[in-house]
Design a protein around this nucleic acid. Structure first.
Lengths: 193, 193
DNA sequence: CATATACTTGACCATTTGGTCAATAATGAA
DNA sequence: TTCATTATTGACCAAATGGTCAAGTATATG
């Protein structure tokens, strides 16, 4: 019925995500987006709305993918400690890949001006979901006899907090080995011997 | 010999620090700075140089104060676990105060574009120094029999990483109680019973 | 083929950005 | 008091910002 678009919407969105991860919302100009997404100005506005709408879609898309690929395994019925180990290994590797883009959710948490904005709620919810996923994996680990700890909720917050720490650490150029050793020690500290 | 300045340089710098903590480097406009510092445009440029120079001075000043007030106690000869507990309590309280300004070092770590820039080096060094301070406090704690762990370096990285996590967590509006419980669990996990 | 529909292109725009300049005002030393 | 020195003020500026408009172009369906 009409002319089909010449670019791949999904691919363009992914490139925008990478750009926002690298430079942040304010730090990314429309020119940056146009160049990296390789689409025309009007195509961008027609397809994604304005800069803020595009950013919101990027954030939502990124969070959704993160939930599926990272939180999913933690919620697996027989995940336990193995799943947690895998989570940190994967996350450390992802974040320390150069250029250090860190994680869009963490970066946005730092950059957001009002925590009750829409992006603030997305970030907040994601963190709560991560906490929930850790809670579940830790509960399983305890049940399996792999781990021991007094306070499940506090332990889950400790793990969540550690995951958040990877953002600033990787961005600051702290080597992946250090992040990995931090996670190793974190896990070792609850492992039953 | 000449007209003295009408404003307090130190106070103006402190206000600039608060502004940068709240909105970040890119997110803070010269107008924001002028308003909050309550000085004239030319006074700012004459006294602090351009925006980037001002930011750098803020970051250095903030890092120096942080070293003195936060890292100092950790390096205390008889600090040990008590000093670590105090560090996290103080940090959590400071970061969760509304409006959530987080920590300028952590915020800058996330915002910086190239990690080999001058601000990147300041941030990187600060983190390494924090790691060093944790190492020392943990060593003391172990010597005193307060704590037990296998790998000092890895444990120090775990603690450093947790401190970094407070930035995104607090900014995202996660309650102070959750941060505190994370720290409590972190410490409990190495405490000798 | 015709045409409605929607993508693409590039010119254009108001606003805000960080930053400068020149004129004025105030002060301490000679 | 004079005057060199420095602070303050407000006008000004070029560049970049995010965003819009209108004209042209391509395509699937009737």
């Amino acid at each position: 019925m009409a002319r089909p678009r010449e670019f791949d919407r999904e691919a363009a969105l992914q490139r925008a995500i990478d750009m926002f991860r690298l430079k942040g919302y304010e730090g990314t100009s429309m020119k940056d987006l146009l160049d990296t997404m390789e689409i025309g100005r009007q195509s961008l506005y027609d397809t994604f709305g304005d800069k803020h709408a595009l950013f919101l879609e990027c954030l939502k898309h990124y969070a959704k993918k993160g939930r599926e690929s990272s939180l999913g395994p933690l919620l697996d019925a027989d995940g336990g400690l193995k799943a947690i180990e895998h989570y940190f290994k994967k996350t450390a590797t992802m974040m320390c890949k150069v250029p250090h883009r860190s994680c869009l959710v963490i970066n946005t948490a730092i950059e957001l001006s009002e925590s009750d904005s829409e992006e603030g709620q997305i970030v907040n919810q994601f963190i709560l979901q991560l906490h929930g996923a850790f809670s579940e994996a830790l509960r399983v680990a305890k049940n399996k006899g792999e781990a021991s700890f007094a306070d499940l909720d506090a332990t889950a917050w400790n793990f969540t907090n550690s995951a958040m720490g990877f953002g600033p650490m990787s961005r600051a150029g702290i080597p992946a080995a250090a992040l990995q050793s931090a996670a190793d020690q974190l896990i070792a500290s609850i492992k039953t011997h």
